[in-house]
Design a protein around this nucleic acid. Structure first.
Lengths: 212, 212
DNA sequence: TGCGTCATACCGACCAGTCGGTACCGTCCG
DNA sequence: CGGACGGTACCGACTGGTCGGTATGACGCA
C-alpha cells in the first residue's frame, strides 16, 4: 500500500545498538532539551523553536539530525522501550524462581522508571500521539511485557504456590498501573529510594498472591 | 441512572449541586465535543475551531459561554473531581467497617472512572496544564482522597486487623495507580464489568492487607 | 424595546518546516 | 607544501498556514 517514502520505522540495523545515547554531542543536547520540555509542557505544547533555544542551537541543527518533531518523540519512546525489554530479557535469562523473578522485574521496572522519569512521563501522557504503525509496534512490545508477567502468575497459581482466588489479570494491571503512577509522585530527592519502593511493592504483591 | 434511591440530599449552596451538567443545551454540545476531542487528540492538539465545528456551532457561541479554551478544561476537571469527592463523602457518611469502606470506595472509584472514561483520560494526561492556582486546589482535593484512604489503612494496621508489614503508602499509591491505569484498558463493551473489576481489585487489596 | 444568544469577519502571534548560505574539516593533486 | 575541492555541520531568515481570541452586529424572544 505504501507507494513512496513512509515514515521511518525502527529497524534492526540500528547503529547505536550498544547504547541508547545519540551519536553526537549536539544530538544529545537536542534530546535533553526536548525531553525536558516535552515532560514539562507536553509535545504539542512545546515548539521546535523552544527546543533549539534551550539547546543553544537553531532549527537548522535540529532538522539536520532529525526529520521532524515527531521523530524526536519516536526516539524517546524507542530508547525507553528498548531499555525495559532489555531488562526483561536479562532477568528471564537468569532463570530465577517465580518469586525472585517477580522481585527482579519489579525492581528493574521501578529503577528504570525512576532513572528515566521524564521519558516515562512523556510516554504515559503522549503515547496516543504516535502514528498508528509505530503505535502498533510499541504496543506489541508492551504487551509482551504484560503477557510475560501474567503468564508467570498464572503458572504459579496452577502450581498452587500463588493464590488462585486472585485475578491474575487484575494483579498484572495493578502492578503496571502502580509503575506508571510512579512518574507522578516519585522524587529523586524524596524519602523513598527506588530500591525501597520496589521492595515495598514486591511485598505488597507477593503478600496478595500468597496462598490462602 | 441507579434505581436505588439516593435521597439526592439537597446540600444546596447557591450553585446547582444536584447535577454537574451545563445549564444550556448549547453548553452541553460544546462540552461533549470538547471532551471527545480532548480525549482523542489532547488539549493542545485540539483547536477551538474543531470543537465548535464538531458541536455544529461557531466560536462566537463558545466564547459567549466560556472565557477561554482552558476554561473548558477546568470545567471538565471540576465536575469530575466533584463527583469523586461526593462519592467519598457519601461513603464515609455510611460509617461502614473499614473493610466495607475500602470495598465501597474502590467500587465507586472504578464505576466513576468507567462511566467518565474520557474525562478521566483527559485528567490523567493533561492535569499538568492547569494554571498553578487551579492546580493547587485540584491537588488538595486529590490529596484529601489519598490521605483518607491512607489513614484508613494505617488505623487498621494499628488495630491489628490489617498487616502492618505492608507499607500503607505504597498500598495507597498502588490502588490509585490502578484506578488511573483503568482509562487505558477498560472498555465498556469488554468482558469485565466495572463491578467485576472493582471486586477483583478489592480482593487483591484486602488479601495483601490481611494479617500474617 | 432591550437583552441574551449566537454568527461573521478579522487580528496579531506563532507554528513546523524549508532553503540559501557559510564555516570548517580532511583529502588529494600539483 | 599549498591550495583547490567536496562533504558535513550548522545558521537564521523566511513561508504558508493555523492558532486563540475579539469586535461587531443580527436575530428572536421577553
Amino acid at each position: 500500500m505504501h507507494s513512496e517514502g513512509s515514515p521511518a520505522l525502527p529497524t534492526t540495523d540500528d547503529r547505536r545498538s550498544s547504547g541508547y545515547e545519540p551519536a553526537t554531542p549536539v544530538q544529545r543536547r537536542i534530546m535533553d532539551a526536548a525531553i525536558e520540555l516535552f515532560a514539562e509542557r507536553g509535545f504539542d505544547g512545546t515548539s521546535v523553536q523552544e527546543i533549539v533555544s534551550a539547546a543553544g542551537l537553531t532549527k537548522g541543527a535540529l532538522y539536520h539530525y532529525y526529520s521532524s518533531k515527531s521523530d524526536l518523540l519516536h526516539e524517546i519512546y524507542h530508547s525507553l522501550i528498548r531499555r525495559q525489554l532489555d531488562g526483561l530479557d536479562r532477568i528471564l535469562a537468569r532463570d530465577l524462581s517465580p518469586e525472585e523473578t517477580v522481585r527482579a522485574l519489579l525492581l528493574d521496572l521501578v529503577e528504570t522508571t525512576a532513572a528515566f522519569k521524564r521519558e516515562s512521563t512523556i510516554f504515559r501522557r503522549e503515547m496516543h500521539k504516535l502514528s498508528p504503525e509505530y503505535l502498533q509496534s510499541i504496543a506489541a512490545d508492551r504487551r509482551r511485557y504484560h503477557e510475560t508477567f501474567l503468564a508467570l502468575i498464572e503458572k504459579e497459581q496452577r502450581a498452587g504456590t500463588f493464590n488462585d482466588a486472585i485475578s491474575a489479570e487484575i494483579a498484572t494491571y495493578t502492578v503496571f498501573g502502580m509503575i506508571n503512577q510512579l512518574t507522578t509522585w516519585y522524587r529523586p530527592e524524596g524519602p523513598k529510594s527506588p530500591e525501597e519502593i520496589a521492595a515495598a511493592l514486591t511485598t505488597f504483591t507477593l503478600q496478595a498472591l500468597r496462598p490462602a
